[in-house]
Structure formats: structure tokens, C-alpha cells
Amino acid sequence: MDILSLLLSYLLLYKYVTLALVVYCGAALLPLPSNAMLLAVGAFSSQGYFNFWLSLAICVTANTLGDLTGYAITRHYGERVIKKLKIDKIRFYHQLQEELRVDAIVTVFITRFAGWLGTATNFLAGLVKVPLGTFLLFDILGNFIEPGIALALGRIVGDYWNNFSGIFELITGVFAVGTIIFILIRIQRRIEKKYSA
């Protein structure tokens, strides 16, 4: 049995508890196939086995809590690790910190749609001390849209959800690449502006 089949078994057995745990762990750190599972939950909701709105509410809550866990870990312990590794002595680190803080809103929101990049951003956001309110607001907004799309797609396609999980992963991957390029271009432009001034 592969990991997705195992998760789906637990999903059918323990329903919303499994949904919350998988989404939370997927958002916090573990590389779990959350999107494929959300498509399945959407399909189950079309068959009356799950409640669509309750599933969405659980997804948003669990996702946000998972993201906050990553954010809190680096916010509290990140500085100590950075100092221990003497990364704070590097000028580039401070520049990167500054750039990320300026781009926080755009980065946090966009990376919600970029799979694993979202998890990496949570850690970075905690490290560069993005204000909690800003992080939470754009995190919840992104977390509402992304699982909403997966659940709705699963609900529309029903039994054929499995055919779409590959497409969904592909879109997420394209988004991740696009986001990295977008952020790099923004940083480069800002650096260019600084040097020319």
C-alpha cells in the first residue's frame, strides 16, 4: 500500500480527525500528498460521505495552525541557531532578511499555492520576523483559497479525482517555479536600484 492509499484508508475510518492531522502535518513540515487527499475528500463530499463546508473549515484551520507552527519555531529558535552557526556575521544574510521583510505580504500569499515552497516560506517568515498579524492574515486568505479549489475540483470530478491529482501537482510545481522566478526578479531589481542610486 502506498502512502496515499494508507492515508485514504485512515480518512475513511477516522474522517475529519485524519483530515485535520494530515493537513496540519503537511503544512508544518512533513511532505504528505495533501492535495491529492483534498481532491479525494471533495469527491467523497459529492457522494455524501463528507461534509464539504466542514471539510473546508477543518482544512483552513489545520493548515493555518501548521503554518503557524513552522513560523513560531523559527521565530523563537531561529535567531539562536543563526548566531550559533555565525550566519549573522554574513552581510548577505542581513540583506536577504531585509528583502524578505519588504516582500512578506506578496511572498506569504503567493507561496500558499506553491506546495512545499509554502512550508519553506513559513520558516523564513519566522526567521525574518514578519509581523504575526500580517503573516496570519495572508496565510488564512491563501489557505482558504487553495484547499477550497482542491475540494471543489474533487467535488466536481467525483470518482475521477485520481486522474486530476497529477494535474494539480503539476500546477503547484509550475506555481512554485514561477514564484521563485518572480521573487528573484523583484530582489534583483531592488538591488539594482540601490546600487544605481
Partner: peptide
């Protein structure tokens, strides 16, 4: 029908 499905789900389906 797949092996990961529960009998409860199959009954409902």
C-alpha cells in the same frame, strides 16, 4: 473499488 476503501464506504457508494 480499491483495497483502501472501507466496507462502510462501499456500502454507501
Amino acid at each position: 473499488v480499491r483495497p483502501w476503501m472501507t466496507f462502510d464506504y462501499i456500502n454507501k457508494l
